[in-house]
Simulated scan of single mutants.
Amino acid sequence: MTRDHSKTFYFGSRFFPLPQRQAVWAVYAACRVGDDIVDEPGGGPVVLSDWWARVQSALTGRVAFSQAGPHPVDLALGWAAGQFPIPVSAFQELYLGLRMDLEGQVYRDMDDLELYCRRVAGVVGFMIAPICGYSGGDRTLEYALRLGQAMQLTNILRDVGEDLARGRLYLPESLLNEYGVTPAMLEAAEVTPEYCALMRHLTALARTWYAEGRAGIPQLQGSGRLAVTAAARAYEGILDALERNGYDNFRRRASVSGTRKLLMLPQAWWEMKLG
């Protein structure tokens, strides 16, 4: 699931030792199941509530069984939680973030968007940090939170067109008004000068969040430093691709090739050594 749905996350995960790698995959898969419930047909509040109940059971060592037997992702998450102190509270915030999608949250300002980025991705840092092992206490977790938020903002900037097709818009109303981007422009998929200016603003904000989040990487233990550095660099590369595409995220999907990711590794390794 990780390899098929997030090549960038999977790329970074390969630098963990096997037990940590498997735990990271289990966490990603559990998050992905929840995400698919709000994005794909057949989901909804009842199905999401069932997912949340199953996650709680798995994290507390009580994997739920149905007539078909336990779900493989539940088994994997239950195993991971038995090996590493993955917090239930982080998944609870994720659940609240996924509900924001189901309830059609309107994003009036950056505070609304930042909260959403925290809930659906920032808290993944709280899940991954215990798997890495870390020092620095809550300060390191705040850095991990910021890095996850940067990745989610990157997703939002990459997927504006796809999200509009689902009836969702994450760009805050206050910024749309500030930059003169109208609903009609978005519906027409117009890459206007005003829209490009808005994208430049949010791309710069995402880069600031990456820089803030990377400050915590030296507090991670062992190969977790390289794994997170590689994933962050590859994810930030999506912003480079968006810029190369002229900020056209209606018709073109910004992505980073496998070759380009590999070429980022020396820089990621050097940053890790400097940290």
Rank of each mutant, 00 (worst) to 15 (best):
H5P: 06
K7C: 12
L18M: 11
Q22M: 06
Q22I: 00
C31D: 10
C31R: 08
D36R: 04
P41I: 12
S49K: 14
W52N: 11
S66Q: 14
A68Y: 07
G69V: 11
H71E: 14
P72C: 07
D74V: 00
G78M: 03
G78K: 04
W79K: 09
A80W: 06
A81K: 01
F84D: 06
I86V: 13
A90Y: 00
Y95I: 01
L96G: 00
V106R: 15
V106L: 15
Y107F: 15
Y107V: 13
R118C: 10
R119F: 01
V120D: 04
V123E: 10
C132M: 05
C132N: 06
C132W: 04
Y134I: 01
G148V: 12
G148I: 11
N155I: 07
L157F: 00
V160E: 08
G161L: 07
E162R: 01
D163Q: 12
R166T: 09
S174A: 15
L175W: 03
E187H: 09
E190Y: 03
L202Y: 03
L202P: 01
A204E: 10
A204H: 05
P218T: 12
L220M: 09
A227R: 03
A227S: 13
V228K: 01
T229G: 13
R233W: 02
L239K: 07
D240I: 04
N245H: 15
A254T: 05
V256M: 12
G258Y: 11
L262F: 08
E271P: 04
L274H: 09
G275Q: 06
